[in-house]
Design a protein around this nucleic acid. Structure first.
Lengths: 146, 146
DNA sequence: TTTGGATAGTTGTATAAACAACTATATGAC
DNA sequence: GTCATATAGTTGTTTATACAACTATCCAAA
């Protein structure tokens, strides 16, 4: 089945991602208000390191859906903030493994709480069923295009 | 009802907007392949001008969910590309009205076709019902946070 | 009619994204 | 072992975003 049922007026929000922009902006404001000196993009890198510390820059590229130069510079900035450290891999000298500092480890709970709070605010008035469907659709979209 | 049902592992994609990033990236590739020398952000401004020509920069801010400096610079670049023209408003000398050039008018059909094609590719395997629910959820999220 | 606040737009600065071109290292075919 | 190719990461450049600070203009209350 093709989905040629798109009316032109409906294209816009889907493509520009206004909803996720709004969520990211709200979360950034919460970070700032809490005195976390951290961008959402930096947080998204830390997010994956909290799940698994010591992964390579290439693995961060795959996880965050960013290209290599973007990760190089995000890691640069996270290093300047003393939140991560590049450690050359011993088994493969092309690779860096990225490790969290103690300071970054401390940021996890607070920032994740703010993220959860943001999503709760975003989803006021939406039933769990519909949230679930929305997540599934977005996942399919991502899989179709990645 | 609160939506405290978010599992941490589910936060990420919602916040980072991986789906809309993937859509925008695919559309940009189609623009490039078609020889349209146009960024998605520039296209999103033209999109609103195609709907209503001659609106102000502030109205473009509201329509595109961007701040004033972002629109200033997008209009700068669109003017350099000779796609729009700033015309000082006669009734309010603070305002510019932004008008499409003939060249920009010609880009509408081709670029909108590519956008529709991109969405069709994105939504392969998703039923119209579920697309509808997803759109509604994203609209509510936007309204909750804007 | 003056003046103070609101609105429209611009400029400066920092961070980030995308693409191309580059270096260094690893790997597999011969 | 040598060499072609692939992979990991960096650097340069352009475009875009967010925030703060700024100018110019408008409008309404005194």
């Amino acid at each position: 089945m093709t989905n040629n049922h798109f009316k032109r007026g409906e294209l816009y929000s889907f493509i520009t991602g206004k909803a996720s922009t709004a969520i990211a902006r709200r979360l950034q404001k919460k970070f700032n208000a809490a005195g976390l000196n951290l961008t959402i993009e930096q947080w998204s890198v830390l997010y994956h390191l909290w799940k698994q510390d010591g992964i390579s820059q290439q693995e961060l590229c795959n996880a965050t859906f960013r290209d290599k130069p973007s990760i190089t510079r995000l890691v640069d900035n996270l290093e300047k903030l003393q939140l991560v450290k590049r450690v050359p891999s011993e088994s493969d000298r092309r690779m860096n493994r990225i490790f969290l500092t103690k300071h970054a480890q401390k940021l996890q709970d607070q920032s994740m709480d703010l993220a959860e709070e943001t999503l709760n605010e975003a989803l006021v008035g939406v039933s769990p069923d519909r949230i679930e469907i929305c997540k599934e659709v977005l996942q399919i979209v991502y899989d179709n295009l990645k």
